[in-house]
């Protein structure tokens, strides 16, 4: 499973607050970093949680 973040993401960093294993709010670059190119199977549930929880629906399965 791969994730992508759409350009309208508001960089609020809520995904990192809830799922720090998967996301990082990169403040200097003003973007969200996804920590894995391929999400490890044990973190897939968290990735799906982030897709559901995102404030603007900017996180998608690639």
């Amino acid at each position: 499973m791969k994730l992508e973040i759409k350009d309208y993401c508001v960089r609020c960093g809520m995904c990192e607050d809830l799922y720090p294993e998967v996301f990082h709010l990169n403040v200097p670059e003003d973007r969200i970093d996804i920590k894995y190119d391929e999400i490890p199977p044990e973190l897939e549930e968290k990735a799906l949680g982030a897709i559901a929880d995102c404030a603007v629906g900017a996180i998608f399965k690639k």
Binding site: C12, M14, D53, C54, A55, V56
Partner: peptide, 13 residues
Amino acid sequence: GRGKGHGSAIVAL
């Protein structure tokens, strides 16, 4: 709002 976000995020978008 959507998910665990607040409504203003959606109004702005």
